[in-house]
Design a protein around this nucleic acid. Sequence first.
DNA 1: TGGCAGGATGTTATAACATTACAAATCAAA
DNA 2: TTTGATTTGTAATGTTATAACATCCTGCCA
Lengths: 162, 162
Amino acid sequence: MSTENNDFFEHKKKIHIKNKKLEHYIEEIDARAKTQNAALTPVRRAVLTLLFLHPQGLKAYELLEKIKEERSNAKPTTVYRALDFLMAQGFAHKIGRNNLFVACHHVSHYLPSLFLVCPKCRTVTELSAIPLMQMLKTEVGNAGFQLTSPEVEISALCPACA
Amino acid sequence: MSTENNDFFEHKKKIHIKNKKLEHYIEEIDARAKTQNAALTPVRRAVLTLLFLHPQGLKAYELLEKIKEERSNAKPTTVYRALDFLMAQGFAHKIGRNNLFVACHHVSHYLPSLFLVCPKCRTVTELSAIPLMQMLKTEVGNAGFQLTSPEVEISALCPACA
DNA sequence: TGGCAGGATGTTATAACATTACAAATCAAA
DNA sequence: TTTGATTTGTAATGTTATAACATCCTGCCA
């Protein structure tokens, strides 16, 4: 009975649900990892998948609960290590204000990404603002500083909550 | 022997050391508090003073240790409550990335302030960037969002560390 | 002047977030 | 097949922040 067309029900509670966009995303990240001499291991893949499936961001211990559904022995360390890896590779970001982690949808970090965090529903939106970020980079440079972090986070009420 | 000119030594270990700029700053904040129907009580004043004296920012528990020198019975709550008040009034900011608190040196928050946080020496620099912040406000508004937080924090290597 | 209402502070406990340190497993290169 | 590097397991602990409830202080007004 476990034919292809009831995979959805069979794996309903699994992290690896059928999802074209997700598959494509993970494949792409996997490829990028290889070029960076880094391995997207099962734990890391699971964490990144969860982040992808929750655009509003997840807290470390929320992530832990979900990971436990597949790896009952997961510990805080399990999650934090995967997150450290993903952030080091530029595949995920931490929203400091809320201790929230999000998947990154950018190809490069030549310019930083702008994150709008809604204080009400806590949704995280990654805004595309090239000229603004370009200007930011210039201004910061003029002040003698050197950008080191690919994320800029701002608290802003989202359209739905406003 | 406690005449006016050895006050400095008498109170060396006190938070209220002689400091013209500090006095002026606190007076100004005190006045602003009054117009906002808020009271700059001794605890709050002490916390704000400490923040003012540490432009690189302070962590809540560092603050707690220092406050304890004057109020030995201070608890985490003491500090967090004062910080909540100061932030609510716009007199202090939290740098989310590092759990660092800083005094605010701005008069108004019509536009947000830009904070550069050095990842190496952790110094927090408040950059004046009116056109940039104006542009930010516009762009965020165009996206249908509404700015709610007066601070924008960025990780950037400071001139000294670079 | 006494008592009440609100805000501020004291106190204890605990929740939420994150790291350290060391052991065991995995895996690929020599 | 040994070795060394990377990843994962596990336990303990460290750090950051809040909850809940008691008490104190202050201004008001009956």
